[in-house]
Amino acid sequence: MIELYVLIGLMIAGSLIAIEVKNLLSAVVAVGVVGLGLSIIFLILKAPDVALTQIVVEIAAVVLLIRATLNRDIAMKYCGNRPFGAIMGILFTGFVFVIALITFKDGLNLFGAPLMTVSQFYPLNAIEGTGATNVVSAIILDYRAYDTLGEATVLFTAVVGVLTVMRSPGKKKEEDLQDSK
């Protein structure tokens, strides 16, 4: 599994570049590198559904980020850290890191040996139960379709939220605001 470690190292390098580089466009491109490495890791870990979705969503996210940051001359201006930001960040992430390492020791299965007590049911019964040969598709649309319904609700809420935030304010409303002041 040496390629896994190489790819995760590439992702860590890409994310370090993405958060430290001064030019915002370069930062967005570095995020694209991170997402591409993640997609290939999914393919190595035998998850082709997730890899396909990840690479497509990555392209969409990079396009949206570039459209948001491009054509804004002030966006290229560098803003540094918050006051005490670096110290607070290092303290908090170190705390998270130590707690997570302690938790890994006790409560997590070894890499390459999953606990299949519940999910062994799905591959054994997918063909007879649903007729779909893709087990992941059978899970998200038959056994756990409530999850997908909730996902559709969240997506709808996000779309409505974007439309609400981005709508241009009407003239009448601005006049009302000035009157109330």
Binding site: D49, L52, T53, A60, A132, N134, A138
Partner: peptide, 18 residues
């Protein structure tokens, strides 16, 4: 082909939108 091969509604929908 979402129920036979990798893919499905999520990935296919985003590809059509792209």
């Amino acid at each position: 082909h979402g129920h036979l091969t990798p893919g499905g509604g999520f990935a296919g929908g985003v590809i059509v939108a792209l």
